[in-house]
Design a protein around this nucleic acid. Structure first.
Lengths: 187, 187, 187, 187
DNA sequence: CTATAACCGAGACGGTACGTCCGGTCTTACG
DNA sequence: CGTAAGACCGGACGTACCGTCTCGGTTATAG
């Protein structure tokens, strides 16, 4: 339960942007926040937990899921937004850090899923659900798996960087994968 | 360039299995390997680099890409193998650790891509190429993106654990996504 | 000015016996006394001050100065009583603590002199005064210095422990030093 | 076993003089000595142990035991020297600190006895032994107890400060106590 | 019979230092 | 002459308490 006036979170965000996660220290956060170390330990279990609050404050803005008229374009736009956010702002680095740290910290992992992944996936699910309602997408589509395929690809590139993650990729990705979700047209 | 007799790597693997990456220390590796700390610093730039050698030694066994006769089944089998490997052995935890650490360490990231990701993707590409040759898959298929979609989904679940990653998932995933790769049948 | 119901002092004594002065904390006293820390700070200036109240409550029982008939035996008995008290009960450890802490704390030192040392010395002086009245001791005897010599020796052994401080020592000490205080006999 | 170049001891002495024992910290010593904290912990078990080295370096100069011709004057001089040393220099404060800390620290207490008290007592014993040889003092005199009485009185005043400890006190003390040690003259 | 103060418990707070761990560098001595 | 052993400086860790400070909730007195 964070405090009402989280100077600490602001300090963490500033230091995170400036120095990176590895060189971020709890002592540093405390000093910059004008706070005793014990205050931080009282409210957060680890450096990563403070960082989580800091990152999610910025990253939790809802990803838009605009209604362009077709599910394909909705997805293209949504994925392009996500890529833009993760690529152009500091958010991407924050998300990468949280996913990285959560590999060694089950509590953090759970918190990341509950506080971030779940709502991102819910946003994505909305687009698919609308597509099904419209009759564009196969009604028996497993939405979770569809999200895995599209967003998994994005996170894969984000985390492994084997190839560029840019706006064009949103189009290519949707073009390549989307047909699997479409309702078979009568011909 | 690792030394001919990497006691250190063996020690690192044992300690990694026993204590986890966080509680693994260079001092600990040195002690267990019967080696001075400086010997480790001479040959590896970081703890994560030793761990990379330790993990890849086990993880680099080629993922099989058997010829079942159809690309769909080849993929199903290959992905099921990967999931099995990452899920049932200690390899999955090692891969997660390497991906996690590479978020803060560009050298490690590059090394991970070159020494692991690239060959895993090459293995996967083989299956797609064979499918194209057979005329099962669309010849203009962007194989890289196709791999992203399938393997990205697997890594996504591996790293974020929002839903179970098991043998059944290989089937579901391929069933949902594969149709997008198929050559349009004559009608 | 201590409060009428010093739960705190009782708590301090119990914790002091159990853990020793170093590991005694104001937080611990407060908790055990069922009291807020501020209540302790309101009434005592330091941990040592609480301990002083705790120790002196037990240590302030008058040392007996029985009338055996001769000053020499009176002293022997009195010193033996003091040694017994400091050696067999927890009082000795308490006194050692107070003297130790008062080395760095002038207020405590003054308080120790006023509340403890002075009355102990007054008790001792009584014996010497009676000896002078009886004509056993030299009338020009400097009683303060005589007390220094006898009691100083006891405290010296108590604080430095270079040699055992036991009942036999009372006899040896008085035998060795007392003659200097005696009135020159007629010959 | 202290190191050959104890910058730490010098730093401790300077800070001790400047700030006092309570406000002396191991971190402070380390910083002033230009040394890591761990180096101090490697070689000394506690702050008090460093202080012991610092104090004894100055205090271990042999107390003179000049041959004035009579044991009484030898003692007067010796005790006056001790009082002078403990009273006029910083040594007295150091000794008080060591005795204080040794009340809670048996290891320190032992070390203090072995490294300081024992040799001081040996110096004093020399004077008594010479007096016995000369025939001035009773041959059956218990030298240890005699030292207790004289030096105990000095330490008592040093530690409890119930009365001034000055040069005049050396004379008064010896005058009052010495007669007990003297050989009975034939008359 | 209130109301207003004194005092209380609880415990968060900014701090300081603790003693530990380990990083990465450098020196020594052995084989 | 390369290496094991490990001392060294440094820095952060997470903990323990410090002494200060609000905060409500009793008492306990004074109007």
């Amino acid at each position: 339960l964070p405090r009402p006036f989280p100077f600490e979170v602001r300090a963490a965000r500033e230091l995170l942007d400036r120095r990176g996660f590895q060189r971020l220290t709890i002592e540093g956060i405390a000093e910059r926040a004008g706070v005793g170390k014990s205050t931080i330990y009282r409210w957060w279990p680890s450096k990563a937990a403070v960082v989580m609050d800091a990152v999610l404050e910025a990253a939790s803005a809802r990803i838009p899921f605009p209604d362009t008229g077709t599910a394909r374009d909705d997805l293209r736009l949504q994925i392009a937004s996500v890529i833009e956010l993760y690529t152009k702002s500091k958010t991407g680095r924050g998300i990468r850090t949280l996913i990285a740290e959560s590999q060694h910290d089950p509590t953090l992992a759970e918190s990341l899923r509950d506080r971030f992944i779940a709502s991102r996936r819910a946003d994505a699910a909305t687009v698919f659900e609308r597509g099904i309602e419209r009759g564009e997408l196969r009604p028996e589509l497993d939405i979770g798996v569809a999200i895995d395929a599209l967003y998994g690809a994005v996170y894969y590139r984000l985390l492994v960087s084997h190839a560029p993650l840019d706006a064009a990729y949103a189009d290519t990705l949707v073009d390549q994968v989307f047909p699997a979700f479409e309702r078979r047209r009568k011909r």
